[in-house]
């Protein structure tokens, strides 16, 4: 860093470094608190169960959480703009079903492309209705949650479509450097989402829309395009999740992704993203999604009743949010 030669320079630069530290803690306390929760859970399950810490199990967890991580990336953008997308679970179901139907026609590559395009289109329709139709995204995507699931059931007659393509199967079962393909895809999504969210104009406008949309509009930015784009991304990400789910089961079920939207939203909120908009973290969301996966896997390893999983996930959500709003934010404030 170049500093000027004027007298107050040392004081200014010292201010900047302490300021940067408090700004860092302030900006990332959501990520810090969910990381603490994850480490504690990780340690607990490692000690309490024989199998949790085994390489096989961890590789498995990393595969299981991939769809949630992928959609949580896009959902972070949506929620940071102050919107919500309740339709992602239904889009997973329709994408899985559509992939099954289209793959049966004999061109798996085209089927994959069409499926992703379908998700994007659904997301963009949601986005257009919310941004240009001036409807609340909650209402629009609630309608889509119902309607899109209905379409999935309608086109399949309620049955799963078997997928036997040798090209689609490796998307879920292929392995590279010890990790399954979905894990690698999820990692790619996280890196890309982090870059776009924190390093580009688009990402900054996503935050600004949620923080003060009117301010951004007065700055000459088309806020409706941003609001529409993020919902389009969520639809596209949900289609990818649907593809991975169908590939893993070797069949496209119209019932895939039921309640998935709530898991994704929970992951995002766990990661410190504010439902009010203006404050989000893609890294936090990824850690949040992994935390939910670790809870369900760890409890299975503990051999407790499987019905405990949603109960514990709910409790962890409350604890993480309390840590987030009460403890870490206070630390960040006093550091100022």
């Amino acid at each position: 860093m170049t500093t000027s030669t004027t007298a107050p320079a040392p004081a200014a630069s010292r201010n900047r470094s302490t300021g940067a530290l408090s700004a860092f803690v302030g900006k990332h306390f959501g990520v810090i608190s969910i990381s603490v929760v994850l480490i504690v859970l990780f340690a607990f399950f490692s000690v309490q169960t024989e199998n949790f810490l085994s390489a096989d199990n961890l590789v498995n967890v990393a595969r299981q959480v991939a769809p949630t991580v992928i959609v949580a990336m896009a959902m972070t953008f949506v929620i940071t703009t102050g919107q919500i997308d309740l339709s992602v679970g239904s889009v997973v179901g329709l994408s899985a079903a559509a992939l099954g139907l289209w793959a049966a026609t004999g061109n798996p590559v085209l089927a994959l492309l069409l499926t992703v395009a379908l998700g994007l289109v659904i997301g963009l329709v949601n986005g257009a209705l919310a941004a240009y139709g001036l409807l609340q995204s909650f209402i629009v995507t609630l309608a889509a949650l119902t309607a899109v699931r209905g379409i999935a059931l309608l086109v399949t007659g309620g049955y799963s479509e078997p997928i036997d393509s040798t090209l689609i199967r490796p998307l879920a079962h292929g392995k590279l450097l010890g990790l399954y393909t979905p894990t690698w895809i999820a990692i790619a999504f996280v890196l890309l989402a982090w870059y776009v969210f924190s390093q580009t104009k688009f990402g900054r406008y996503v935050t600004a829309v949620g923080s003060n949309a009117e301010s951004l509009r007065r700055s000459g930015v088309d806020i409706r395009r941003i609001q529409m784009a993020v919902l389009g991304l969520a639809g596209g990400a949900a289609a990818v999740a649907g593809i991975l789910t169908a590939a893993r089961l070797s069949s496209g079920s119209p019932n895939s992704g039921t309640m998935f939207e709530l898991e994704v939203i929970t992951a995002v909120v766990l990661g410190g993203t504010s439902l009010m908009g203006g404050r989000g973290s893609v890294i936090g969301s990824a850690i949040g999604a992994v935390t939910l996966g670790v809870i369900s896997n760890g409890l299975v390893q503990l051999r407790v009743d499987v019905y405990w999983v949603p109960i514990v996930q709910g409790l962890i959500l409350v604890v993480a949010i309390l840590l987030n709003t009460k403890l870490f934010s206070r630390i960040a404030r006093t550091r100022k």
């Binding site: 700004a23 600004a208 949620g210 923080s211 301010s215 007065r218």
Partner: peptide, 25 residues
């Protein structure tokens, strides 16, 4: 007309951010 969640520099440059042409960074 400021965004409270963005830092001072981000607010000063809102709508006219400086970024690299190729990486969009």
């Amino acid at each position: 007309a400021l965004c409270n969640d963005l830092d001072v520099a981000a607010n000063l440059f809102l709508g006219r951010e400086i970024h690299h042409r190729w990486t969009r960074r």
